[in-house]
Design a protein around this nucleic acid. Sequence first.
DNA 1: CAGCAAGTTTTTGCATGCAATCTCCGCGCA
DNA 2: TGCGCGGAGATTGCATGCAAAAACTTGCTG
Lengths: 264, 264
Amino acid sequence: MQSTESKSKSGNSAEVSQTGRTLLNLRGMLLRGDFQPGERLSELPLVARLGVSRTPIRLALDRLAHEGLLEASPTGGFVVRAFSLEDIWDALETRGVLEGAAARLASERLEHDSELVQLREYRDELDAMIHAESDPEHLAVPDFDSYARYLDLNEAFHSEIVTLAKSAMLRRTLEQVKSIPFASPSAMVYVRSKLPRAPQILAVAHEHHRAIVEAIERKQGARAEALAREHAGMSRYNVEVALTEPSILSTVPGASLIRMPAAV
Amino acid sequence: MQSTESKSKSGNSAEVSQTGRTLLNLRGMLLRGDFQPGERLSELPLVARLGVSRTPIRLALDRLAHEGLLEASPTGGFVVRAFSLEDIWDALETRGVLEGAAARLASERLEHDSELVQLREYRDELDAMIHAESDPEHLAVPDFDSYARYLDLNEAFHSEIVTLAKSAMLRRTLEQVKSIPFASPSAMVYVRSKLPRAPQILAVAHEHHRAIVEAIERKQGARAEALAREHAGMSRYNVEVALTEPSILSTVPGASLIRMPAAV
DNA sequence: CAGCAAGTTTTTGCATGCAATCTCCGCGCA
DNA sequence: TGCGCGGAGATTGCATGCAAAAACTTGCTG
């Protein structure tokens, strides 16, 4: 009845549909910690909070349940999912397995060396960033932008490997796994910057990158797979450190959805 | 306690909610080949065909798009997805990787030998079926029920391995992969029965089963992983044969969604 | 005859009403 | 005092109306 609001068509974000906007909003709120794990998400309060009607909210809730951030209650409705530590380890393990498979397929399905141009470029850019970082003349306090840039590059590098695997199925599956908090590689990279021995860890990670590219271009499938798994396994250490440092933990999206085993 | 069915048709299935029933109906229709690949699924015709309103239909369509059987059109609405041969191979490859990981985790995370009781039971029952089958006095024309039973047992066996992997994440991911036509292990088992040398193939498959159990109980993770991958790889041969035999192909759910490369 | 444009029809996306169901709280009874 | 029960409010699932956008059709013009 009432004109909900003046929905200006201009200046809107890239998302045009109500459902899409609601999905992004809700996901953001969940990862930001606006809701407690186990909390029941009723539709009507969300109507007031998001300014859209129940229909797109229901659609978005359904999709979030498919993604795994929510659980469908048997009696109806949705509940914010709580992630145990085991869930995190399992997600990391699964991601490692899938990224390993992607690296192996990338090497097995390589046809022309030219396909690696983009991947090498990312590798070199990452390499340049690492060296600039370790450069003694570089400012000791790393700026936020360089982290964001490293994060994007890292993301692009790993995404390129999946592209080279030439498997839409694998990409889809990996996307689903990465939607779980802490399972996304980029989610934890920022943590590294606050770690002791961060430069060394970064060096190891980038050596993995270098070796993975080498294995792919030499069609060493098993090596590429093992390397990618090991590389993904480094995230576990990041999570472990993050869990001991609340100041770090609070910067990681979805941290509030973790249900700690005993205390805290 | 009141009569819940006031306007619902007589003799509905075990599914109570309209959305659930619609989801099952639509999935069945898709796998049965009631729609052509690429066909646009409009909501209104489905209202007439399924006897429910647009709301549960929209929900079901959305879920099927998440499962991968439908694609969301950029202009809105959903179209029946066409699967290429590469999609099938990729799905089988991904399933093999995940089932391999499940077998490895099952061995790595085994705590008490007693956890294997159920798995050994399935193995022995499968074993008994195989031997009964190869028994010369057994009727040469295998009855349909025994296939159904073998199928259930096979399904239970592999599901038990995933259970032993103790990873909800892995189970979820595997479920998604198996929702693609031809990617489910049980989808293709029936094909074997019509193959030449079916007994030999069955023997190899069951030797895999036996060896996987052995590897798990001996905590030979790498061996279990390799075996499970190899076992899943057998499905590829089944699909290849099925594709050459229309009479076999027509019995496999979802076969009509395959878009053949050149001719029919 | 071809191409474009305007009108028409279909279809989707969203909002909302309604009824069945669930939840929760208070009350009565053993 | 503890427990079952009933009812009122809250909540979900479903159906449907409505408007905007897409797709199709038709007619006009070069």
